[in-house]
Write a protein that binds this DNA or RNA. Sequence first.
DNA 1: TTTGATATACGAATATATTCGTACATTAGT
DNA 2: ACTAATGTACGAATATATTCGTATATCAAA
Lengths: 127, 127
Amino acid sequence: MSSQNTIKPTESELEILQILWEKGDCTVREVHEILTQHKEAGYTTTLKIMQLMQEKGLVRRDTSSKTHIYSALASQQKTQEHLLSKLIDNAFSGSAARLVMQALGNHSASKDEIEAIKKYLNDLDYK
Amino acid sequence: MSSQNTIKPTESELEILQILWEKGDCTVREVHEILTQHKEAGYTTTLKIMQLMQEKGLVRRDTSSKTHIYSALASQQKTQEHLLSKLIDNAFSGSAARLVMQALGNHSASKDEIEAIKKYLNDLDYK
DNA sequence: TTTGATATACGAATATATTCGTACATTAGT
DNA sequence: ACTAATGTACGAATATATTCGTATATCAAA
């Protein structure tokens, strides 16, 4: 079972992980461009964070050429799992149901999304 | 509309808020006892955090007697809303549905919980 | 009234996260 | 070959969160 993802990403790290999850391999420049669509940040700041992430094992990088290529090592699945269960414990008194309802109630899931969830719930029953 | 809850509690603060949400009014001692069921912590550490929370406006305290009485100011609802939407944005690419399914899938919601959610979803339809 | 238990206030140490300046290397264009 | 652009490495400043020691006040019991 390879290396664990006990490591919890910080907020900045999470922003970067998300980009890597979506885009796959990226240079620092690419990540940085995307990041700065939302917020201000210096290039070396992004670089530094990604370097630290590499040391922590959250990402891997290919340094064979001058411009390094980064990709996510932390699995999206595991990371989401971890953050979610932390939130459930921390803010929802351990009740997944409460969290779910809150999410559905406020975050205006679309009709499609709600249908998908219903289907999902029904499938759960048959296990 | 009173004071906003733009303030985001830290992890330690959240632990304390949860206790206050559940128990209502508490002394530092009471909160501390509950906290230390799960983890190690010095009394003055808990005290300090609660004092800082008061300064930040997360809690209010009654100092009329020697032993101060604390209660939550940050609403559970608002705080959950905020943390949840942050998580959805930060780790689930903005998709509430993905988060919900992840929550249901892994966090082993009980049969009762799942029933409650189904009911909830059906009610949503009629609005 | 002396002592012990319990309380708050406060300051400081430690840890962690974030930000960025500066130095230096490499590459591409002129 | 020189210069500008672009990249990494590294160290330091800043911000924030966490932890706890120590001083001091209050109260109750002996």
